[in-house]
């Protein structure tokens, strides 16, 4: 607070000229939001909500109005199915298991609005050729060939998925990694927490490293197109940091052993619509808020006619690996 006078002076100068602007309510009519991701091998779930006006006099909540009484029709290859609302999942559920190349049409009719969208489910999913888990234990803290009896434990590693991109068309991908550390030695008085921090992700092809850190600036932004990698062998990497620590509720101590680490490497083939949606949704979040006044606002892609949201498809390939 050495500079509080400055801060106060600046704040005074700025706020003295700040006034509230009357905003016309006509711009804030709630919109119908349809979110439905058709995953091959799974039934389709459809989420229906209304958007919330930001500058509304009626509410200051960010809660969304979930629509429970809509008429939702899914047409699969010419066959129509009426979707029913599940009050537990708060979604409309289909019984049809999504198949590759299905032609899908979704129509939503609510009391106020009607929306629709059509897609063709992607034709195939690529397989994962190889996965890897590289750690140099450079901090010397962890050697997973031995047991460790420490209060905390951490490790850096690079996780990789290698696959071959089909050259006959444009492909869009999304990579995901999930893992579980299994520990023993915990008891009621000691809480063991496992945190997995994600760092910068990279993308390389044919072992020639390419710096695409901008494309992977957020942990949520893991989508990419094969524009410049078409037909090549691609390796997606992700730097991770594993941190395990214990907190004590009394002075009793016990030993903790990290037994095993199992990682699920998942590669999603996504369609162009989902690619555009995830790209723009991520940028939208990054550019919103007061601290990003100088960032250009981002419109999120939608293919819903009469509303917003996304109706898209994807197929997942997962490879589970036990690291130790």
């Amino acid at each position: 607070m050495k500079y509080k006078h400055f801060v106060f002076l600046l704040f005074f100068l700025l706020t003295s000229c700040v006034t509230e602007v009357e905003f016309e309510a006509k711009d804030t009519e709630p919109q119908l939001v349809v979110n439905a991701i058709a995953e091959v091998g799974q039934p389709l779930n459809v989420s229906l909500t209304y958007s919330t006006p930001i500058f509304s006099n009626k509410t200051n909540e960010y809660g969304y109005t979930i629509i429970k009484d809509a008429e939702v029709t899914l047409t699969i290859n010419g066959y129509s199915e009426q979707l029913s609302y599940n009050s537990f999942s708060r979604q409309y559920e289909s019984t049809h298991i999504i198949q590759y190349s299905d032609s899908l049409n979704l129509t939503v009719i609510t009391r106020q609005k009607t929306a629709s969208a059509s897609i063709r489910v992607i034709d195939e999913a690529v397989t994962i050729d190889k996965t890897d888990f590289i750690t140099d234990n450079r901090l010397g803290v962890f050697d997973y060939t031995e047991e460790h009896i420490v209060n905390y434990w951490y490790m850096y590693a690079t996780l990789g998925i290698t696959f071959s991109d089909p050259s006959d068309k444009n492909n869009y991908y999304l990579a995901d990694y999930s893992g579980n550390l299994y520990t023993t030695g915990t008891n009621d008085t000691i809480k063991t927490t496992v945190e997995w921090f994600n760092f910068e992700q990279g993308l390389s092809e044919n072992s020639s490293e390419l710096d695409l850190s901008d494309n992977f600036s957020s942990t949520d932004n893991r989508v990419f197109a094969d524009d410049i990698y078409n037909g090549k062998t691609i390796r997606i990497t992700k730097d991770a940091y594993f941190f395990v620590y214990r907190t004590y509720s009394d002075e009793k101590d016990s030993q903790m052993t990290v037994d095993s680490l199992i990682i699920d490497y998942s590669l999603y083939n996504i369609d162009r619509q989902l690619y555009l949606y995830l790209q723009t949704a991520n940028s939208n979040q990054l550019s919103s808020g007061f601290l990003n006044l100088f960032a250009e606002p981002v419109q999120v892609y939608t293919n819903i006619e009469g509303g917003m949201g996304i109706f898209a498809s994807m197929a997942r390939t997962t490879k589970r690996e036990r690291i130790f």
Partner: peptide, 19 residues
Amino acid sequence: TQQYMQADVFGDIYTSLDY
């Protein structure tokens, strides 16, 4: 002018988007 719910791809069901 509005906010709405992002599609649930990875369980991020309460993530908001600006419209």
